[in-house]
Each structure stands twice: as structure tokens, then as C-alpha cells.
Nucleic acid binder design. Structure first.
Length: 254
DNA sequence: AATCGAGACAACCGCGGGGAG
DNA sequence: TCTCCCCGCGGTTGTCTCGAT
């Protein structure tokens, strides 16, 4: 059986996906679906192999994916199903709507496995594990628990909530207020004089690759920096502001 | 302030199943 | 029945972040 050449040999790109690539993939799949992964990247104009596209879509960009905040019920389900089925991650994922096999696998290896067998990893029995237990107790009163996944998610370069990939300003405000206490950010988002920083807006920014061509962006960021007390041009980085505006990433302390 | 190690998670690799011709 | 090709799965690696020293 002859295997297809790997991405590297074909001169295809590997590694983390960019905003532009995500958008291209999403737009293409929304228009045409994905009847043939192998042919998709070529048709969509992506320098990726089909496998990479499929993985990106199924693990990250799919609209029905639910991320972060594994509830206690989900954790218990994973533990029970793993006990019954072993490492059949896709089968486990099928029982957890919105969760991917990759995500469940990661959670298992980095967290649940250690929680179940604390003796195998002494470091987890210490403060971190204890902290998890305490958090769990609190959440039995509060409802949802903040999983360890979530603690890091805001700082990761992840854009899965991309369907709607780059939410409108209205949507953004709900994201922001739910994750941060950035009052100046909220003011900014409620400001009627600002242009709508919607999907098209960010798409143009990243496709241009040069924010200088978009004075409106500079103006918005300038206002935000000023209101938050930043020095001018402190954060002249579109990735940073994309995360702030669309993902509610926390603004740095001054 | 710099360095190091661990944790978290995204992405890749290789294998095997299964369908089409 | 055999071969080819595509896809999905599970294991593994790579990269980034953060806390400890």
C-alpha cells in the first residue's frame, strides 16, 4: 500500500494555524462542505495537507464544539466511560456532545488520570490537587466548575469560537464581561461611535497584515489604551487586540 | 531579572478499517 | 478478490505559559 507523501515533502505548511488559514477553512467548508479532505486544501487555497485541515476542523473550528469548563458531570462521565471502554477516545467523545476526542484525551492525560491515581504522581497530590478538590466543593454549590483547562485557555492562541469566528461587538461584550473585569473594555465596546468590529473587520485586518492601512483600528486601540491608562503604542499587536476584542482576553495590569 | 521545569493543549504521525473500482 | 485511496483513531510530540527557584 502506497502512502501519500507527508506534508513536508510536498512543501506544505505545518504547525500552528493562523487566523487567515482558519477563516479560509471555515469559509470554504461553510460554502462547500468537506466531501473530500484530501482535495479540500487545494480547492480552498490552503498550503496544508487534508489531514491537517480535517484535524483543525474537527478538533477546533467545528461550530458545535464546546470548549473549556468541563463540568463535574462531564468529568464523571469520562471517568466512567474510560473505566468501561479504555482509551477509546472517539467513543467517549461521542457520549459527550461538543467535546472532541483530542480534548478528552488531553484532559485525561493531564488531569483526570492523576486525580484518579494520585499515588502515581506525588506532585498532584500536593497543593494543586488539593486546590482542585476545594474548587470542586465550592462548585457543588455554585454549579459549573472552572476546569484547569480554562485557566490557561485565555492565554493560548486559540480561536475556536470562530463560528461565529469573530463575534460582533454585541456578542463580544457578553464574552468580555463574563470573563474579565475590564471596565474600560466594556465602555469601549458599548461606544456607539466605534465601527463594528465584526468578522469582516478582523478578516480585513489580518489579510492586509499591516494595521497601518486601517486607521480605524489604530484609533480604536488608541482610545482603549488611553482609557485604560496605557502609554501610546504600548500594544501595537493585532493578535493581542484580536484576543482582547473577540475572546475577552484580560488586559495587562498597569 | 533570569532560568528552569512542569503543566496544558494544539498539532502531527503512523496505523488500520472500510469503501470503491 | 485485490488494490488503491480516504478517513478516523490513538499515541506522541511540540510549543507556549506560568510558577518556583
Amino acid at each position: 500500500m502506497v502512502r501519500a507523501p507527508c506534508c513536508e515533502k510536498m512543501g506544505l505548511k505545518k504547525g500552528p494555524w493562523t487566523h487567515q488559514e482558519d477563516r479560509i477553512l471555515i469559509d470554504y467548508i461553510n460554502l462547500h462542505g468537506h466531501p473530500n479532505w484530501r482535495a479540500l486544501p487545494k480547492l480552498a487555497g490552503l498550503l496544508r495537507c487534508g489531514k491537517s485541515c480535517r484535524l483543525r476542523w474537527t478538533n477546533y473550528l467545528r461550530p458545535d464544539i464546546k470548549r473549556g469548563n468541563f463540568s463535574r458531570e462531564e468529568e464523571e462521565t469520562i471517568i466512567q466511560l474510560h473505566t468501561a471502554m479504555g482509551n477509546r477516545w472517539s467513543a467517549i467523545a461521542a457520549r459527550l456532545p461538543g467535546r472532541t476526542d483530542n480534548e478528552i484525551k488531553n484532559v485525561w492525560h493531564t488531569y483526570l488520570k492523576k486525580r484518579l491515581n494520585p499515588n502515581t504522581n506525588p506532585t498532584v497530590t500536593s497543593s494543586k490537587f488539593q486546590q482542585e478538590v476545594e474548587i470542586s466543593k465550592e462548585d457543588e454549590e455554585d454549579g459549573a466548575r472552572s476546569s484547569p483547562l480554562e485557566t490557561n485557555s485565555s492565554s493560548q492562541t486559540s480561536y475556536n469560537q470562530i463560528d461565529s469566528p469573530q463575534p460582533s461587538s454585541t456578542e463580544i461584550s457578553s464574552v468580555t464581561t463574563s470573563t474579565n473585569d475590564n471596565s474600560c473594555m466594556e465602555d469601549m465596546l458599548l461606544d456607539q461611535s466605534l465601527p463594528d468590529m465584526d468578522e469582516e473587520f478582523w478578516s480585513e485586518i489580518f489579510s492586509a497584515g499591516n494595521s497601518d492601512e486601517f486607521p480605524a483600528v489604530h484609533e480604536n486601540i488608541g482610545q482603549l489604551q488611553s482609557r485604560c491608562g496605557f502609554e501610546s503604542n504600548l500594544h501595537d499587536d493585532m493578535d493581542f487586540w484580536y484576543n482582547v476584542f473577540t475572546r475577552g482576553e484580560e488586559l495587562p495590569q498597569i
